[in-house]
């Protein structure tokens, strides 16, 4: 009798935890997705974007969420099956949240063709689903920590942790993607690159790299990175900051390509627009190393 009650209690607790995870996901989708849902250029992109680019970015979101899920997830995920499940759940939350908000804001109307509905939702679902995934881990961090702590500390005793190199680069890519998605669709990005001279661009490169390095190593933020005393400073610069900047550049290029900002444009102009977008992207990448 008491055993039965205990298992029912367990089940209820399990269910509540899962529901809380879903709600946190929804909250995350809203926090991270709203700025983009209220961006005019993204509504238009829903039907002006080349279908193949939309397809590629929609498919690319799945592995991205999958790897994110392996690192954080709605539940504590260990197997790839659970990670995949969490990725799909996050994507679904992103899609539902985008659809609901776009209908609420009067951007999606019944009279619109199905193409337009799908296009508009599919674009918004990308940032919203990343938001859903991050929402679970970041919003739930305070309360979840005491229950997560015990076996996490197994090998990383104390508060020192090391992250694998590919994971570090991946996290930078997520941060870069996130911030660049916020600004890339607006006309301002290309307008800024038209206003800037090549000299402005050169300085922007140096500023981006300096900010990236400073964010992670110089300023003592919580979650910041330290070097062991015998490692010279330039080691971290070459091993982490420079590849991080290249990741930011590549993500910027990808986002600009998806949004059709590079078509019929000269190489120099493409490079300049990319460097403008890489400024927020590199800050996003640096922030991701601190937060995630």
């Amino acid at each position: 009798m008491s055993e039965k009650a205990a298992s029912a209690e367990d089940w209820r607790e399990e269910r509540n935890r899962f529901l809380a995870g879903l709600l946190r996901g929804g909250a995350g989708a809203l926090i991270f997705g709203l700025p983009m849902m209220m961006t005019m250029e993204l509504w238009a992109l829903g039907f002006t974007i080349a279908p193949i680019r939309l397809l590629i970015s929609a498919i690319a979101t799945i592995p991205l969420l999958f790897v994110l899920a392996q690192r954080m997830g709605f539940e504590r995920t260990f197997t790839w099956r659970e990670a995949l499940r969490d990725a799909i759940i996050a994507y679904a939350i992103g899609i539902l949240a985008s659809a609901a908000l776009l209908v609420l804001l009067g951007i999606l109307k019944l009279a619109m063709p199905a193409d337009e509905w799908v296009g508009k939702i599919a674009i918004q679902a990308i940032p919203a689903s990343i938001g859903a995934m991050l929402g679970r881990s970041q919003l739930g961090a305070e309360k979840g920590s005491e229950e997560d702590e015990p076996d996490d500390d197994g090998e990383n005793a104390g508060d020192q942790v090391t992250t694998s190199y590919p994971t570090e680069l991946f996290m930078m890519a997520v941060g870069a993607l996130f911030l660049s998605l916020n600004v890339a669709p607006t006309e301002e990005i290309i307008l800024i690159s038209y206003k800037m001279t090549q000299w402005h661009t050169l300085i922007t490169i140096f500023v981006s790299i300096t900010l990236m390095h400073g964010f992670v190593y110089a300023l003592a933020f919580r979650g910041g990175h330290e070097l062991s005393p015998d490692t010279p400073q330039w080691h971290a610069f070459v091993r982490f900051t420079m590849p991080g900047y290249v990741v930011a550049i590549l993500i910027s290029l990808y986002v600009l390509w998806v949004f059709g900002r590079l078509d019929d444009t000269a190489w120099t102009q493409i490079l300049m627009t990319t460097i403008v977008l890489a400024l927020p992207a590199s800050i996003g990448a640096a922030a991701a190393r601190l937060i995630l």
Partner: peptide
């Protein structure tokens, strides 16, 4: 979750 709260120390013996 503990990972997000702790400070990282880069490994001093990096992979090639």
């Amino acid at each position: 979750m503990s990972a997000s709260k702790a400070r990282h120390t880069e490994s001093s013996d990096p992979h090639w």
